[in-house]
Every structure is written in C-alpha cells, then in structure tokens.
Amino acid sequence: MALNVIKMKKMKGEGVPLSMLTAYDYPSARLAEEAGVDLILVGDSLGNVVLGYDSTLPVTLDDMVYHTRSVARGAGNTFIVADMPFMTYHGGIDETLRGVRRLMQEGHAHAVKMEGGLEICDTVRAVVNAGVPVLAHIGLTPQSVHTIGGYRVQGKDPEDARRLMKEAKALEQAGAFGIVLELVTEEVAEAITRELGIPTIGIGAGRRCDGQVLVFHDVLQYASPYREKRFVKTYADIGGVIRDGLTRYVQEVKERAFPAEEHVFAADESVLDSLYGAAGEGANSK
C-alpha cells in the first residue's frame, strides 16, 4: 500500500486529485486496484446495491466486516476505508472502539468513515487518539436521511452553508484526515475545500473538491433496473452486457445448443464396455 494519510494531504497541497471508488467484494476490489484508484471505500451503500435494502440503515457491523475482509483480499495494495454502519458510533466510546477494532483487525481496513457533524467530533477525536484514521462525511448523510428530510442537496442557503463550513472545520480539528462532501452545492464545496488543510472528496459536490468518489455499480451501471443520477457519469454498461449474456445462455440451454461438442469430454470405448458390456451395447443398438 503506497498511499497514506500524509501523502493524501500532500496531494491536496500539490493539486493532485484523489480518485476513490466503492467496492464490496474480492472481484470488484481487484478490478478497482488494477484500474489504479487511490482509495477504496467499502461503503454501507452495499445495503442498497448488494444486499437489496431500500436504505443503508439495515446494514450491520457483521456485514461491514465480512465485505471489508473480502475487499482487502482483492486489493492488498490500496488504501481501504470501511464505513461504520448505522448507530455503531453514537453510544459510548467503548462500544464505538469495539466496532472500529473489528473493522481494522477482522476486516483489515486502513481507516473508518463516519457520517455526521458536530455531534460526532468527540467520537472522531477518540478514535483518532486510539490510532485509527477517520474519514468524515457531511452534507447528505444517508444514515440520517429520515431526519434531514430525504435525499436533498445541501448548502443551498446561507444558513446551511455556514453550518457545513462549521462542521467541516470542527471535524478537521477533531483529527479527521479527510471529509466526504455528498450532494453539496459546488460553491459551498469549493469554499470548504479552500478553508481546510485536509482533502475533501466529493460525490455530487461539484468540480472543486480535492477528489471524487462514486459507487462501483453507478460507474458501471451494474443494476437492474438502473436509476439515473444527475451527479453520476456511467463509464460502461455492464448490466446490459450481463443481461444479454445470461439471456443467450438460457436460450441455448433450451435449444440444446449448449453444451456443444467442444464443451464435452469423450470416454474410451473400454470405459463404455465396463459400464454396459459389449453385448449390452449391441442389444441397446437394435
């Protein structure tokens, strides 16, 4: 693993953007690493795109440990951040640290991500003091979707912009090594990026962040049906390719076109003799 939190901060200073992508299993992590992404996020978005939930809320710590461990096996040379799932870091610090320990020791993550603003600063500070890098996450925070009124763009009025700036600065002060800005107006995201000494990583937060993150399944349109999102650019439609391939497979099985001669293994006549006997084979041929 070549990248670390010190190098990320240096990249911000040099104006070198950070590329981040989610991954949830061994093959997606392997492909992401081969593509050269800087960071992999094992997001609790796996609830939506892998586990079939309507939100991230049902995702458990066991889910996150399992999927983070799979990603770590596939991307051994990439910096891996694991999401702390819903309500695993809002109780006592001992409970929080137990969850963090599991993601680091069992999941082999290099850092954890936490959603929230001022209310989690003490928790961020305690986790960082325990030796674990923390990536913060403000703006649209999916774990709080019911309290913020749905999936709405943040920073659209002066009061909200000031709130986001205050939260970002407090999280930096608490020791976060970077901050994800999700669905934040471009102007506010740019202002926060200028004010902070740590990298900002945007998703739906415009062009001025220090890096960008997208969901694996959005980049590759790997879903059925796929729902378009304004802030996403699709680089390949593998969902359509997979569907077409599976459809052809089913059709060929039904038509007995698969398996064909090149897919089978032939036995010697002696093997058939041992099964049926020469006399039996002759009788069956009449």
Results as ranks from 00 to 15, higher is better:
N4Q: 08
K12N: 11
G13F: 10
E14H: 09
L18E: 06
S19H: 10
L21Y: 12
T22K: 05
Y26D: 01
Y26S: 00
P27M: 02
S28H: 08
S28L: 04
R30M: 04
E33K: 09
E33C: 04
E34R: 15
V37Y: 12
L39P: 06
V42M: 00
L46Q: 04
G47Y: 14
G47H: 07
G47L: 08
G52W: 08
Y53N: 14
S55F: 11
T56W: 15
V65S: 03
Y66T: 00
H67T: 01
T68N: 01
R69I: 00
V71C: 01
R73V: 00
G74K: 00
G74I: 00
N77Q: 07
F79T: 06
F79L: 15
A82C: 05
T88K: 08
G91P: 08
G91H: 13
I93N: 03
L97P: 02
R98L: 06
V100L: 03
R101Q: 06
M104F: 01
Q105G: 02
E106P: 03
H110V: 00
K113T: 04
T123I: 08
G131N: 11
V134A: 09
L135H: 02
A136S: 13
I138D: 11
I138L: 09
I138R: 07
T141D: 12
T141M: 15
P142D: 10
S144K: 15
T147K: 11
G149N: 14
G149I: 14
G155W: 04
G155Y: 02
G155M: 02
G155T: 03
G155S: 02
R163Y: 05
L164I: 04
L164R: 09
M165Q: 06
K166S: 06
A174Q: 10
A176W: 10
G178Q: 06
G178W: 03
E187F: 03
L196W: 05
L196H: 08
I203R: 12
I203L: 15
A205N: 09
A205C: 07
G206F: 01
L214M: 15
H217V: 02
D218A: 02
D218Q: 03
S224Y: 15
P225N: 12
R230I: 03
A236R: 15
D237N: 15
I238K: 12
I238L: 13
I242G: 10
L246V: 12
L246Y: 11
T247Y: 07
V250Q: 09
V253G: 08
A257W: 06
V264N: 07
A267N: 10
A267H: 10
D268K: 04
S270F: 04
L272F: 11
D273W: 12
A283D: 14
S285Q: 13
K286W: 06
